[in-house]
Design a protein around this nucleic acid. Structure first.
Lengths: 183, 183
DNA sequence: AGCACGCTGTTTAGACCTAAACAAGGAGTG
DNA sequence: CACTCCTTGTTTAGGTCTAAACAGCGTGCT
């Protein structure tokens, strides 16, 4: 039977809708709302942690992406957009901010358009000095789950993501099946 | 053994860090990054869905919270802050916007401070006309998982959240022993 | 009564994002 | 060679959030 326990936020929402509007389809809340809640707690924690290190999450994402990509730590704006999952405009803004801070250097073509973004020594050093600490901190946040639970959770999230990407990914790329020339 | 498949975003990040910086503690990425990715896909989808209905996610959150709370659909700003998981300032702004749109009415004390926020007939109607459709749409987004997988995913997310709340929830409320409130 | 403190709500500054309008180049075609 | 389309990057308008400074008010202590 259901173990006796206090409802969490998502369950309270489900119970409230069912009480107020019997028949409301509340099942998805158990997954979707919990993903948002967990994501928010983790994002808020990351923001606070990074604030102590004098960096913000958007800049860390940019620098990490360049660093992970490998030497010479240089990518085009289109590659960054793809990797960071944000809009093209957001990339322009992130690069502008990071360049002002001296963390990246933007290579520009004659027209003023950025053709590549490259990590500076300062940006490289900032990442090297924070990524391990950040990841160790976050590892500690999930260690109340057993290794088996973490493995299972990661697997299920991956299965969920596979389906979401298939349904929701950018409509332009979604219609691009390998070798279908109908469009 | 490991089924042969293409790595997803989170796995690519793990592989890249391991290649670039062997020893980097990447395990948490399998859970945390996937939560953020799934959350972003779902949030982007909800934003687009609601845009078609002429409402934004923040306002929907406010109106839903009031509606679910039950008649007379009235809550204090402090209750809303607690339920919506956003800052006090965000509540002030949400209420101001929703009031301008005629979706809620703010009861103010002499000093101009809001003592309670109440759904208007228009706000009530907007929720009634969109919540079922929205939830059915989102249910469809997770139905590629089997019922058993969805159940298991919800359970694991809940276990994760229990631990996160214990570690990360507001330091002031974190020390508050379980006393009242089981109503 | 007088006063300090804590709780709540508001305001504002600063970050960040998306969507959409724009702009610059390259590729294919007549 | 001119034209058009398409891809890619920039700009801007609008919206949201947090953090922190600020303000009103009740409460308890002296």
């Amino acid at each position: 039977m259901t173990p006796p326990r206090n409802p969490d936020g998502a369950e309270r929402i489900q119970l409230a809708w069912t009480r107020e509007r019997p028949g409301t389809p509340v099942e998805s809340i158990g997954v979707i709302t919990r993903i948002w809640h967990a994501g928010k707690l983790l994002a808020d924690d990351r923001r606070r942690t990074l604030a102590r290190l004098g960096i913000d999450a958007a800049t860390l994402d940019l620098l990490s992406t360049l660093r992970r990509h490998g030497a010479p730590y240089r990518m085009t704006p289109a590659e960054l957009k793809e990797a960071c999952l944000v809009s093209a405009g957001a990339i322009s803004q992130r690069v502008a901010r990071a360049e002002t801070s001296g963390l990246v250097r933007a290579h520009r073509s004659s027209g003023g358009r950025t053709s590549a973004v490259e990590l500076t020594a300062e940006g490289h050093a900032l990442i090297e000095g924070s990524v391990d600490e950040l990841l160790r901190h976050e590892q500690a946040l999930v260690e109340h789950l057993t290794p088996a639970q973490r493995e299972q959770l990661a697997e299920l999230l991956r299965a969920l993501l596979d389906g979401l990407v298939a349904r929701l990914a950018d409509p332009r790329t979604a219609e691009r099946p390998p070798s279908s020339g109908a469009g």
